[in-house]
């Protein structure tokens, strides 16, 4: 990341956007909150945080953000964590506003209610692109969705031990069921910044 300073937006309609912003700033990039369509201008990439996907959908619809976000995603990288991944998907098995940018089908609250929320170490081979150390990624799942199926051209980045998909990438689009922003581990954010800096 030499050269120009990257400017990354974090969708700030609701959710843990402050945690993403803190992580981005720690990595030395400019991070800005996005609540309105005009704030998407001049961004190099966008993160959609954890939160409630139904709330994102309602607010994005009422403030005219759905089409501008789709347009943004056709040109620039977007990463969705948890609710953000649901919002990025094309199908969540229920009628709620989705961006439909990424060819993945998600199952909301796939592990059950809050008492089933968990932490686990995941193997994420793709992170070798940003780190020489081959360490597992400690993943935090909170009322998390699963990526039930992926379409053609979508690469699976991580699975649970039983094979279920929890991270995927489709070109410039990235989806994780879990919350790298809640860990101290910056590798997923670095991986996303690499996508922003080297558009595929």
């Amino acid at each position: 990341m030499v050269g120009k300073l990257l400017r990354i937006g974090v969708l700030a309609l609701q959710g843990d956007f402050a945690e993403h912003i803190a992580m981005l700033r720690q990595l030395g990039v400019e991070a800005v909150e996005v609540r309105l369509a005009e704030q998407l201008a001049s961004l190099d990439g966008l993160i959609m945080p954890g939160g409630e996907s139904t709330t994102f959908g309602k607010l994005a619809t009422d403030f005219g953000l759905i089409e501008p976000l789709r347009e943004f995603g056709r040109q620039k990288p977007i990463w969705g964590t948890c609710a953000g991944a649901i919002f990025l998907s094309k199908d969540a098995h229920r009628p709620q506003p989705l961006l439909g940018l990424m060819d993945i089908t998600v199952e909301r609250n796939a592990f059950g209610r809050q008492v089933a929320s968990f932490e686990v170490d995941l193997d994420v081979p793709a992170l070798k692109a940003v780190s020489d150390e081959d360490l597992p990624f400690h993943a935090i799942f909170i009322r998390a969705p699963l990526i039930e199926s992926v379409g053609e051209g979508v690469e699976v980045l991580a699975r649970l031990e039983d094979g279920r998909i929890v991270a995927a990438q489709q070109g410039r689009l990235l989806a994780t069921s879990f919350h790298p922003e809640l860990t101290g581990d910056p590798r997923f954010h670095q991986y996303f910044l690499r996508l922003v800096d080297n558009p595929t």
């Binding site: 959710g15 409630e52 709330t55 809050q114 799942f141 909170i142 009322r143």
Partner: peptide, 19 residues
């Protein structure tokens, strides 16, 4: 897998922020 850690307990509240 570890369930019911303080991280996942306070984590749900973090997801509710701004709401």
């Amino acid at each position: 897998q570890q369930v019911a850690t303080f991280t996942v307990k306070k984590g749900l509240a973090q997801m509710l922020k701004g709401g």
